[in-house]
Design a protein around this nucleic acid. Structure first.
Lengths: 407, 407
DNA sequence: AGACTTTCTACTACAGTCGTACAAAGTCGT
DNA sequence: ACGACTTTGTACGACTGTAGTAGAAAGTCT
């Protein structure tokens, strides 16, 4: 994304964006603080802050403590002045939220639906749920800055407006974005679920201090969202991050993708369930084999000390760690965040992953990186979707529109 | 690398950089062409071009063909106005070049030396060879825009001024950059060999039209340089691109790095030689086993139809392809460029790589990407080193210094 | 030969940041 | 209590950069 900074107004937009972002991040700071942190002159800060005050996103809120002179006037970001909408479309669910600018969910709806085969039903449901959360908040459309949507498949093309339909043939030719934008006159942004998870972690979670991180979502499939140099990295065709189908064993078992020895065929949800059942059978523990069915169940049982589930979780961690070691060697991010249902197993999983990583990654890359479990839980993707709208609202090229009083 | 575009002079530097880059790339174009391609106003282009003419990097060179009106005045980049120096430091060699701004080598020196154990001898040799190529060209220091240096180990830290010394303990505490900058009053830039190879391909080779590419250097080790979104990607600790130690077989043979099943232990030079010898022994062909010793020999023999070497090259291609498939899945670049001694085997290698990639990478990622063999040959890294100096000379923040008449 | 087209450049207008001077509102020492 | 000092924030003019308009320059086309 090359930024065309040719003309003067673009410079102002750029500086405005920087200042707004600083206030947003710290929550409350004075003009003098901004001068020190931005490197801009006091005059310019004064002028920029004037614009922000006029917009309503920022308020003056009393004075701070003096440091030996005139006390500073504190500027506070008004997290409730505007809100954003997030739509997390999974393979079998829709999750819709309204979120404020602090990353807090104000209202949410969750519904199970067979997304893959029913595009129009899905879109109708999304529209309905969006209206419901708006009514519950309650918020008018004029108070919404934008809407983010995530899909469980890679994006197609660089325009970020279409989705790959290999796994979802029924969606061929469906213009998801237009269908939503028609009902709600808002800027709509699209991305895939793992990327959104990464964005959520970067803005509100454990990735806030990091410029290079990977969010790995453990589900039926295993995907990852990459943030490199502070930005989502999508690759040339929009399919970057497909860590689930990286090979960790050239002679491994066949995977649904046609390849052999994919990481997903060791770590994916189906592999877990199969492994548990098989191990139960081997050890003549049919009870557990019948009982345990979902990844969440396996994680819970492992935590309670079930030997079979513990072993499967640990073995899974070792395979996952191998793939993560490859990612560390190749991209050297400072942080890896694990998300998805399996992370309920906590340290049992994490320790196994870390052990494998320490063993397999280059010492420098692994020593200088951290691996953690997401604390955003099941809302991560929906929060990330909504955050896409904030991210774009703050972009210099859209800032004028964002700050303009609702018309 | 966040660009601070706060003040007005920065805008000019930015636009100047854009215009200069456009002229450099196309070689020759009119002001009107620049207006169309840059989006800037005719007035501004006129003013910017004035600066460039004054600098000496650009000349007016007659008129072009009219398209029905006044014929355009052609602006031509003067590729010989300034030059840059490149120093490729390998494990056992130094390669020093002078290069013009078209990417053509004007003079070069190559010398074998045990770099790893002898830092001071290496630095002395570099200084001597630099002086020799300058004398041969012949060029004065005032005609040199900068100097790039590559090292065969990852960089340490984000300042790009130190090197990791795990594999080169004798270099601990040696300030390579300062030692060179002391002798030659030039801006000096450092990067590792694979990154430089990627830069060379992006500027002068087959990567010119691509924003996301990987250059893979096949040698004793296997490293890669990544260009993502048009920029070298280094990761948080500077070790990104270590594809050689990514695991492609969890249960594979031990590698010198401590891990098992690393790609390098299948594809590295030592593995190749060992494989050839072993296969010769199995098939009772001791002659070839004695004769073939270097990777270049193996590649040549394979091309001549030697069955053992052919088989080893193809097998190697399959392993390499597996690692490349992982890279494609994870980063989805549009282009992979193979470099290093083994690529002398040509299509024999490439076909095996492509077959493995098609089999193992996600269909979309592999269908939309190309895999090619570098045509820059043994000079790739040195050219990349020199190109680092050009790249930096064109950077907006250094452009004023670059364009200023030599003082 | 004249109308038209394209290229390139003065001149002016406008926009943005910066430095300086200054007002505002505290703290601190006596 | 009061003045000196410090820190914060703003008004004003200077400087710099791009865009728009008008016009000159130099061809083509009929």
């Amino acid at each position: 994304m090359i930024r065309l900074l040719s003309d003067l107004p673009a410079v102002r937009a750029h500086n405005l964006s920087r200042v707004l972002t600083l206030i947003h991040r710290t929550g409350s700071m004075s003009r003098a603080d901004l001068v020190r942190q931005s490197g801009l002159s006091a005059t310019t800060i004064s002028s920029l802050v004037g614009d922000l005050l006029a917009s309503g996103f920022v308020h003056e809120s009393g004075t701070g403590v003096s440091s030996g002179g005139r006390p500073p006037i504190l500027l506070q970001f008004d997290y409730k002045f505007r809100h954003v909408l997030g739509v997390d479309i999974g393979a079998t669910h829709i999750h819709v939220i309204v979120m404020d600018f602090r990353g807090d969910i104000v209202a949410s709806r969750f519904c199970r639906i067979d997304v893959i085969v029913d595009p129009h039903g899905t879109i109708a449901a999304i529209r309905r749920l969006l209206q419901e959360v708006l009514d519950e908040a309650p918020l008018a459309l004029e108070q919404i800055s934008g809407l983010g949507v995530t899909i469980p498949t890679p994006l197609a093309g660089e325009k970020l407006d279409t989705l790959t339909t290999i796994y979802m043939p029924a969606w061929e030719g469906v213009d998801l974005l237009a269908q939503i934008a028609d009902a709600f006159a808002l800027p709509v942004y699209l991305d895939n679920d793992a990327n959104a998870g990464a964005v959520a972690e970067k803005w509100w979670g454990q990735g806030q201090a990091y410029d290079n991180l990977a969010y790995i979502k453990l589900g039926v499939g295993v995907g990852s969202g990459l943030i490199l140099n502070g930005e989502i990295y999508r690759g040339s065709g929009g399919t970057a991050g497909e860590i689930g189908h990286t090979t960790i064993n050239v002679d491994g078992p066949p995977c649904r993708c046609g390849n052999r020895g994919c990481m997903e065929s060791y770590v994916g949800a189906n592999a877990l369930v199969t492994a548990v059942k098989q191990l139960c059978q081997e050890r003549a523990q049919p009870a557990a084999g019948e009982r345990v069915l979902t990844v969440g169940d396996i994680a819970a049982a492992a935590l309670e000390g079930d030997p079979v589930c513990s072993e499967v979780v640990q073995r899974t961690g070792a395979y996952l760690g191998t793939a993560i070691a490859n990612l560390l060697n190749l991209l050297n991010p400072a942080l890896i965040i694990l998300g998805g249902d399996l992370v309920a197993a906590g340290d049992l999983l994490l320790d196994a992953v870390c052990a494998a990583v320490r063993q397999r990654a280059m010492p420098k890359a692994s020593a200088e990186s951290e691996i953690v479990i997401s604390r955003l839980g099941r809302d991560a993707v929906a929060i990330g979707a909504a955050t896409l709208a904030i991210q774009n609202a703050f972009r210099p090229s859209r800032l004028a529109h964002t700050l303009a009083p609702a018309s």
